[in-house]
Every structure is written in structure tokens, then in C-alpha cells.
Simulated assay, not measured.
Amino acid sequence: MTITLQLSLIFFCFFLFTSIQSHSTSLSGTAKITYLSPTILFANYDKMIADFKIYIYKTPKAISPTFTSSPESIFYSNLLNSEFVTQNADDAHLFFLPFAPDTSTRALARLVREIRQSFSYWNRSLGADHFFISRAGIDYGSDRNVLELKKNSVQISYFPTKSGNFVPHKDITLPPVVDSVIELPHARANKTASFLGYMKLNKDDQSTWSLIDEMMDDQDFLIESEPFDHKSNINTSKYCIFIYNSDMNWFVEAIASRCVPVIITDRPIQDLPLMDVLQWSEIAVVISTRGGVKGMKLLLSEISEEKYERMKESGVVASRNLVWNAVPERYDAFYMVMYQLWLRRHTIRYTRREFA
């Protein structure tokens, strides 16, 4: 290696290091704690925009997607009209297998079998570089094709996903669609809190009725069965309370309005939206039902005012990544779901002769 080449290499490395350092220091303190790896995220995001390619299979008309107004519909529509789609399957990093939400297990097995036989891509990775959308997630099946789809392919489902239908670190959930307009990126600061916690009551939450009854008898909590003025209640409450696997459609609205979410569950949560990106421990509080209201109030009282303020601001930052826009905008829900797919593009691809 010549001295000139060595000096050029040293200069390049120094330039790269200082660029990364400069980008890192330019991030706000809130952004640094909101994201798991902020420096990597922003550098990797630009590479995704420039390089990421997806091939979409054409599926039979009988099982073609017919999503209604939902996160799945918005994601699917945005993907079809995005710069990520390629007509050359050899250029693709990932392959999208679209099918209708009500597709039967038998039809699903037949679809995968046809893809396996008609294209060379499935067998290269046993479906690990493929993804699909299923609102509730699919169950394991005895058919080899459905089993490979479930175990290997990336499932995009709706948050929260039914227990057992979500595979952590492989699958992805879509953030809920916000029904009302959110003031982003500068949501209103909370007024002086009138309530410790606010909750929109769902009559289907049978498993937590004893806890809900306790909260209804406690003046520190506002439990609303008919959410006539929930915006005001969000803005006058320190915490917004959610029963996991229940109505969480206003989850994004809460954090955008600086109401720290409290998620009540007795099992680990592994399907929060953007789990690969957001540091949820800095945004939300997870509480078990076992301690009752007394245990909940004790745990919340132990959160310092400094941390509470930090969580509120982290929620506002995160809400920008969880909002679906009619026309996708940088770092919004569509692009961040795409980023999670981008992170999953590295899969083992077997040589073709093994399947000859």
C-alpha cells in the first residue's frame, strides 16, 4: 500500500468518525433516550431510502387483499405507491406475499405452494426473506407451507396481537390509526393535573374488572365509560391507563398529548410498535394487576418528577414516528415500519442446488 493511499484511508476514516460524532452530538437529549440506537437509526434510515427494494407477488383474485380503512390498508396502499417496489425480483431484498384477511389456512397453504413451485426465491431462505400482513396474526398449521410462513416469514399484524400469534424479534406490529388530529410535533403541554390516571372504560375487560372497580372508587382516577370529552381528560391527567390487549386505539394520541401511558398486563409485552426503534421504558410504564390500585399508586409515586417530565417529552418525540399520514412523510409510521423490515433483510439464503 502506497503512502498516498494510506494517508487517504486515514483521512477517510477520520472524516467518517467526525461525521458520526457530529451527528450524534447534534441529537437532542430527548432523542438520545427515546431511540434505542439513534446514531445508527438516522444513518441507516438514509441507506434504506436509497437502496431498499421489495418485490410483490401477484396473488389470485379470489384472495387478493381487500383491506378496509385500517393501518393495514394504509400501509398496503403506501407500499404499492412507494419507491421501494421493484419489478425485478432479482434486485429485491424482501418479498411481499399479499392475501386477504379472511384467507383460509387451506388457501394459504396452496398459495405458498404455488409460490414455491413458480419462483426460486422462497426455497433460498425457506421464506425468511418474505413478509405478509395479517391483522390478528396467523396460527401454526400442520401443512409445511403454512408452518414455514408462520415460523420464518415476517408477519405484520395489528397492535396488540393475540397471544401466541406473534413471534418476538421476527414479527412487526402496526401502530393504530389516530382518529382525531394530533398537534405534532409540538403537542400542548398538560394543564395542572386533576387526576393521577385517566382510563376509557371497555366493558370487555372482564379479566381486570376488580382492578377497574378499585380505580372507580378512588378519586385520584377518572374512569370514563362514555368518552365524550376524552381530549380534555387526557390533558388534565398525569397518566393514561390502558388494559393491554384491549382498546388501545388512542394510545398514540395520549403520548402525543404528553400523557404518560400506563399499560396494565400480567405478562411480558413483546409486540409494541417499533420495538426495534423506540426505547419504550422511557415512554411507558408497565404495571401488573397483582398489586391492585394500592400497588399501582405506589409504583407511580416512585417515578421522580424529573423522569416523568422526560417520559412526557420522549412520548412526543416517539409520536411523530407512530402517526400515519395520508402522504407518507420522513420518519412517520409508514417509513418506520419499512425501516423495521429493512433491519430484517439479512437472512440465510441457501444455494439452489440443495433443492434440486
Rank of each mutant, 00 (worst) to 15 (best):
Y239V: 09
T34P: 08
P38E: 10
D229M: 05
D90H: 03
T30R: 02
T208D: 02
A256L: 09
K53L: 09
Y239C: 10
H169Y: 09
W209E: 12
F99P: 05
I49W: 06
S73E: 10
C259T: 02
C13D: 06
I283H: 14
E253K: 05
S120K: 14
S157D: 02
A109Y: 02
I234S: 00
A128R: 12
F96E: 12
F67P: 05
Y198N: 07
Y350M: 06
D91P: 01
L300M: 09
P227V: 05
P65H: 13
N165D: 05
I20Q: 11
P65Y: 10
Y76M: 07
E305P: 08
N152C: 06
R349Y: 04
S28L: 06
D332C: 08
G164F: 07
F195V: 09
G292W: 00
S77R: 15
F132Y: 14
T86S: 14
A43R: 02
T265F: 05
V317C: 08
D271P: 00
S207P: 00
W250A: 07
V285T: 03
E183D: 08
R349T: 09
D218Y: 05
G292M: 06
N88Y: 08
L298W: 00
K151W: 03
T161K: 12
F228N: 15
D129T: 04
S207V: 03
L149T: 04
D229R: 12
F132R: 14
Y339C: 07
P175E: 08
C13V: 08
W342Y: 12
K150E: 07
L16R: 13
F251L: 13
V323Y: 12
I20S: 09
N325C: 08
T30G: 07
A43Y: 04
S73I: 00
Y331E: 06
I133E: 06
F52V: 01
A189C: 04
G291Q: 01
K150I: 00
S301P: 04
I234V: 04
Y335M: 11
V181K: 14
T351V: 04
I156P: 01
N321G: 05
N321K: 13
S246F: 02
N190R: 15
T161L: 09
A356F: 01
S246K: 12
N152R: 06
G164E: 05
E226G: 01
L343E: 07
E253N: 07
H23Q: 09
P176S: 12
G315C: 12
I40E: 11
S157E: 00
D276W: 05
S70G: 10
C13A: 12
T347M: 11
A89P: 02
Y335I: 02
P176Q: 12
G197I: 07
L174Y: 04
I182C: 14
